[in-house]
Design a protein around this nucleic acid. Structure first.
Lengths: 229, 229
DNA sequence: CCACAATAGTGTCAGTGAAACACTAAGGGG
DNA sequence: CCCCTTAGTGTTTCACTGACACTATTGTGG
């Protein structure tokens, strides 16, 4: 299986920043390393790109192998290629970020028996390699992107209340939003459709459930529509 | 110099989309290939990443080797890694885009004796590999980015008239802008400072020259300032 | 069953920014 | 000196943003 090349090549990996949301704040999925270097440190899930799979395929495969997550929103973030970012040898990594809703997915211990866990962005352990930098880049991108692309929905279940949606935006943007203005703006896009359903098992007036209209968004996007919160 | 690895590795390259502007439209720098595959076809400048240089260093090195361009605005675009994008073997490429002003740089034939030339985006030859896709991605990014980051200046000489600046925006955005509104908006940022100088050798009333205040922009950026046209 | 607690849901007004719009000023060329 | 070309300048209208407070509904507990 070994292979010889005329010139030395950097190793190529993918790393994935998986974001989720709980009541309090943004969470990120980390894996505890069981090998040197950085043994015992927490790191982003990821691994080597095989020669017969695309970068995104590699990202999805590694994510499922290490955390059990699949069928999630995944987008390329940036490629990190500083010469010394890995102490062993030259490693270039293509970073992706992913958004999941905590309720919809089981996160299980990885197949490699490594430890996988969610961490609040406000309470992170020290990370291996340059993963703190990758994470910071992902966080910045998320904050920027959420304002002009409808990706907030990826962090929620398919049916959600406007309160939940506002909460998503408040946590990502890091500031409170006005309820009435938020509802006006969101509904005025026509992309959030009300359902004939209300939330269940709450100890107060139940809120109406809404759903994001993906097809309408796809149609509008092609016409140069510009979503904005 | 050859090297053996336990597992096969994709080759890693960088490709650069260099934009410039003439009176009419956006131009891109292409190189005519003198080797198979796609011999004789036009392609983006680029080449292999060495193990002892970062990705951006590789991009700048290749660009200077192949086109003579240096000290220009360069930013990472996207990493393309489809399995079959190169017919020879698995090649992953980190794409960058660059902005230059035509007047300020000499573009010379490459050291590899390959042919380098500017092409209008509206009149492109067929490109090698997936370079048409890379170019399209770069064009989209440029159009998006120009609206909320002051990169339009990179396409102009250091001293420019407001007419020239408006022209840059009109060509990138692909639509005419109102002269008075444009001037108001641009000047209201305080980042474009008037000089005690006017343009020379024009057959009509000469316009005042302006200059972008990089230091002020850097200062404002840190404070979360949001440039927008 | 009634009072309370908790969240859902709704409209207006003021201020700000965006877009539309046309004329006078300056300078070179013939 | 007339003409051509581009520079340079303000106002008004309209739409959108942000600030702001009360009533409605439902479950809980005494």
């Amino acid at each position: 299986m070994s292979k010889t090349y005329e010139y030395p090549r950097p190793a190529l990996t993918v790393d994935i920043v998986v974001f989720a949301l709980d009541e309090e704040d943004l969470q990120v999925m980390l894996i505890q390393r069981d090998l040197a270097p950085f043994e015992g440190r927490w790191a982003l899930p990821g691994g080597f790109v095989r020669v017969d799979e695309s970068l995104e395929e590699a990202g999805r495969r590694e994510l499922e192998e290490e955390t059990g997550l699949k069928d999630i929103y995944l987008e390329q973030l940036y490629t990190f290629g500083e010469v010394t970012r890995d102490p062993r040898e030259r490693v270039v990594t293509v970073a992706y970020y992913a958004l999941v809703n905590l309720a919809g997915h089981d996160i299980h211990a990885s197949s490699d028996a490594r430890n996988a866990a969610w961490f609040s962005l406000n309470d992170l352990p020290e990370l291996a390699f340059d993963h703190d930098q990758i994470l910071a880049t992902a966080h910045t991108r998320l904050r920027g992107k959420v304002r002009y692309q409808p990706i907030g929905f990826e962090l929620l279940p398919r049916k959600f209340t406007l309160r939940q949606l506002q909460h998503v935006y408040e946590i990502i943007l890091g500031r409170p939003l006005d309820k009435r203005n938020f509802r006006k703006k969101v509904l005025s896009t026509g992309l959030i459709v009300p359902l004939e359903e209300i939330e269940q098992d709450v100890a107060h007036r139940a809120a109406r459930l809404y759903q994001f209209d993906n097809r309408k968004y796809a149609r509008l996007s092609k016409q140069g529509f510009h979503f904005e919160i």
